Computed example of a mutant assay.
Amino acid sequence: MPDNNQFSPVSLETMNCFKKHAPEIIEKTVQISMKRKEEVIQHGNQAQKLLILGMQFTTKMLESALITGEISLLEDELKWAKDRLPHDDVTMKHVLVRLKIYRTQIMKTLPEECAIEIVPFIDWMIEWQETHLKEELNE
């Protein structure tokens, strides 16, 4: 995994673009995630609301990391998710799948010049999640 010093804050234009399109990216990510019934059934009729809240939280944390270049903010979020979400029957694999869907929606929704600044942050999150999921499986 890259160390924290390899990330620079994104441009103001990219930040504004991401903020403008974030609701659409969240909506599409949730729509796709809701089709994965095996990952949301445990939430019952609250599933869509919980996914929206989770993606909004992820987006806010990502915005903070994009502005500052501080990957540690994302690492803290992922550590929290690893400890907390299993209590809600959300597995680390569910989180990984949602991050990948989120990444795809960022690539599809944002202009390329914006997406290429943001994707390294998401890729870092995905790689972190994959690494910790492998460690979890080997325990």
Rank of each mutant, 00 (worst) to 15 (best):
H43M: 15
M61H: 03
Q46R: 13
I67E: 15
T29R: 08
E77G: 08
F121C: 09
I25E: 14
Q31P: 02
I101L: 10
M92N: 13
C17P: 08
E27D: 14
I122E: 06
K60N: 12
E24I: 13
E135V: 03
F57I: 11
P111L: 00
V40Q: 15
T109K: 02
W128V: 05
Q105S: 08
E130F: 02
K108G: 07
I126W: 03
L51E: 14
F7Q: 06
E112F: 04
H21L: 13
H43P: 01
G69P: 04
H94L: 06
E112A: 07
E130V: 00
L12V: 06
K49E: 15
E127V: 00
W80M: 07
P120R: 00
T68R: 02
L85W: 00
D88Y: 13
W124T: 07
T68Y: 06
S64M: 15
E63H: 10
K28I: 04
P86K: 00
I41E: 15
S8I: 03
E13P: 09
M15A: 10
Q31K: 09
I71N: 08
P111R: 01
R84F: 12
P120H: 01
K28P: 08
K82E: 04
S8M: 12
G54F: 00
M125P: 06
F121M: 01
E24L: 13
M55R: 02
K134I: 14
R98M: 07
V119P: 02
I67C: 10
M107L: 07
L85M: 10
K93R: 07
D123F: 00
D89L: 11
C17V: 01
S8V: 04
N5P: 00
E27P: 01
P2T: 07
I71A: 11
Q31L: 12
R103G: 04
L62D: 03
P111W: 02
L137R: 11
L12Q: 05
K82D: 08
L99M: 05
S11E: 08
